[in-house]
Amino acid sequence: MATQTKPQSATDRSTAFKWSMVIDLDRCTGCEACVVACQSENNVPINEESAFIEGRAFEWIRLERYWEGEWPDIKARFIPVLCQHCENAPCEPVCPVYATYHNNEGLNVQVYNRCVGTRYCGANCPYHARQFNFWEPVWPEDLRHQLNPDVTVRTRGVMEKCSMCIQRIRRATRSKTPSDIPDGAFNPACVQACPTSAMTFGNLNNPESKVSKLQNDERRYHMFEHLGTAPTTLYLKQVDTHGA
């Protein structure tokens, strides 16, 4: 994680920024470029085969495949799932040490140094967006120099999850006023890497931003809306043009 720059004042930033992401499933091809980009940007450990067999693979963003309908009228679907940065996050009140909390920019953030590893947040996250470091993360020798110096390398025993590339947010907004930051001036790694521009990132508190405008799209939905977690990540439904 980037070194925390003190904001001018807390209220300033909370009125200035509210980061959000919109994922258009109609555009998503399931290429997993976002997964790779996230992996290298955020120093996420390399998932070898054994990690998947153990069920301890790290993917801050992952492509989930699911089925819709009953055979023979069945469709394979996929959806990128990442931390939804819920405004009413189930993971937050259950942490005894405030290792996860809501910051004043609408992000659900994880403080690795505070985490003692009770894994309650992970158990309570309905999106399964949280990953736990069961082992000390290791990188192959030739990838050592690939690590991003802006992001903490996590230690064994702590939870981690999508931070909405907070290091990029910090770098881009440091000592700048909100009006100085044009919409789309910077993006998290996954958004940047998406070849079909299925993902959009921006500031909800800026009414002119793309994400703000997409909030009223008729295809919009939140994942697991019935749980009342109020995610800030919005999905745009895939609409079938042929058949129902």
């Binding site: 153990e54 301890r56 309650y120 399964h128 069961f134 082992w135």
Partner: peptide, 15 residues
């Protein structure tokens, strides 16, 4: 010494 990997816990069965 080794980490919680020596248990059978895995995602999402954290407990």
């Amino acid at each position: 010494n080794q980490g919680l990997g020596v248990t059978g816990l895995r995602q999402p069965v954290f407990w």
